[in-house]
Amino acid sequence: MIRLGPTFLLLTCLLCTCDRAQTNETGSRGATGQRHEISGQAMGSYYRITYLGDSIPFLTGSVDSLLDAYNLELSAWVPESKLSQFNERDSGVDLRGTQHFIPNLELAIKISRETDGAYDPTVAPLVNYWGFGAGERRTSTDYDVAEIARLRTLVGLENIELKGERLTKKIPGVQLDVSASAKGYGVDLVSELMSARGRPNHLVDIGGEMRGGGTKDGAAWNVAIRLPDEDKTKIASAGTLPLMNGRALATSGNYLNYYKVDGETYSHTINPKTGMVERNTLLSASVLAPDCATADAYATACMVLGPEKALRLIEARPEMEGYFLTRGDDGTLVTLKSSGL
């Protein structure tokens, strides 16, 4: 374990690139060719794509169209999306003609089973109750135990059924939330687009979730573990991790997605089994995996499980690695990492 000083008591782990790309299409030239960067807004956050080789005309438009199409299927903030339609109806939806919904749902079901329900795509009613997702922020520290118990009956894979291209709910009120893997899936989509357009050497970053395609001039794309405090302009780095050949890195943490009511902090990690806001000593979880959607969902599961169980979960999967920031007994920040790191 690496102990960092008490200055970093409540820090969490976000990601930023160490190797900042050129901000125009005529940047520096490396061993594998010209280096370019484009950026924009997507999924309630930013995206930034760095790639090597000749410039791709109209790439920004292609990326925006790709992510917009994804949102029309799976965004909880787009009223006409398939996800919103499913959540609003008592029965279900026809998924014919969709491209992304079924792969996302099948991945979510797989990871929910692998994590024993620590990650569950049917957690949406509880997420909304606590003021995240499509829910309204709470104005009181009081909560209704009976209502939480009722909402918990809506949570669980047994409450949905996917038959072919038809998704149904077993009881009214069941809702889906795949936001825990949405940005990661978007990263994978863009990474696949870059490879299809003949630019295998690239780094895709959507809101801090990243995937490194190929290499950067023959070496890995280095990304940093960022240690922010409440002042988002303050940045400190705890070190770097390498991404290459499609390896992806995603981080989940409570530090930048929370609100306070009368001094009580409500963070966005909801335990599907208890129905409560999860509070444990794990401040953030970074997971490396072969694809970003998987890394994203597993990082969320790790936050629910807490540091010890999270570390065991990742150690049992040789294709993954984990980097966890926890609060030690003496108030210092403690870094735990899987053996492969």
Results as ranks from 00 to 15, higher is better:
277 V>P: 04
105 L>N: 02
260 K>C: 14
17 T>S: 14
186 G>I: 05
268 H>G: 01
85 Q>C: 08
268 H>N: 04
258 Y>E: 14
259 Y>E: 09
224 A>H: 06
188 D>K: 02
219 A>E: 14
154 L>P: 00
244 M>N: 13
55 S>W: 05
294 T>S: 14
294 T>H: 09
231 D>W: 02
122 T>F: 13
193 L>R: 02
275 G>V: 04
115 T>A: 02
250 A>T: 00
197 R>K: 15
80 E>P: 00
54 D>G: 15
341 L>E: 15
30 G>V: 10
81 S>K: 03
252 S>V: 08
91 S>T: 12
123 V>I: 14
17 T>D: 14
177 D>S: 04
120 D>K: 00
182 A>F: 07
338 S>K: 05
145 V>S: 09
59 L>S: 05
130 W>F: 15
337 K>S: 10
2 I>F: 09
29 R>I: 15
243 L>V: 11
217 D>I: 13
84 S>W: 01
335 T>E: 15
217 D>H: 07
46 Y>A: 08
281 T>I: 09
51 Y>K: 02
111 I>P: 00
321 E>R: 10
236 A>W: 12
99 Q>A: 09
112 S>K: 00
241 L>C: 07
93 V>A: 01
53 G>K: 04
170 K>V: 06
6 P>T: 07
153 T>P: 00
39 S>T: 12
185 Y>A: 01
45 S>D: 10
124 A>Y: 06
50 T>W: 06
47 Y>I: 01
144 D>A: 09
232 K>L: 14
336 L>W: 14
197 R>P: 00
230 E>P: 02
17 T>R: 15
53 G>M: 09
266 Y>P: 01
40 G>W: 07
204 V>G: 00
332 T>K: 05
313 L>I: 05
296 D>C: 07
79 P>F: 12
113 R>I: 05
130 W>I: 11
69 A>D: 10
113 R>V: 08
4 L>G: 03
113 R>P: 04
240 T>P: 02
225 I>V: 15
256 L>Q: 13
95 L>N: 07
109 I>D: 06
217 D>S: 13
79 P>A: 12
139 T>V: 11
161 E>D: 07
336 L>K: 04
39 S>L: 08
206 I>R: 02
309 K>Q: 13
280 N>L: 09
151 L>Q: 08
263 G>V: 12
217 D>W: 08
197 R>D: 04
55 S>V: 15
150 R>Y: 12
81 S>L: 06
105 L>D: 02
103 P>M: 10
15 L>H: 14
54 D>R: 11
152 R>Y: 10
242 P>I: 12
325 L>Y: 06
117 G>E: 06
209 E>H: 07
182 A>C: 03
239 G>W: 09
163 K>R: 15
156 G>V: 03
326 T>D: 08
227 L>N: 01
78 V>I: 14
212 G>D: 03
278 E>P: 02
190 V>H: 00
249 L>K: 00
52 L>V: 15
112 S>F: 00
161 E>A: 12
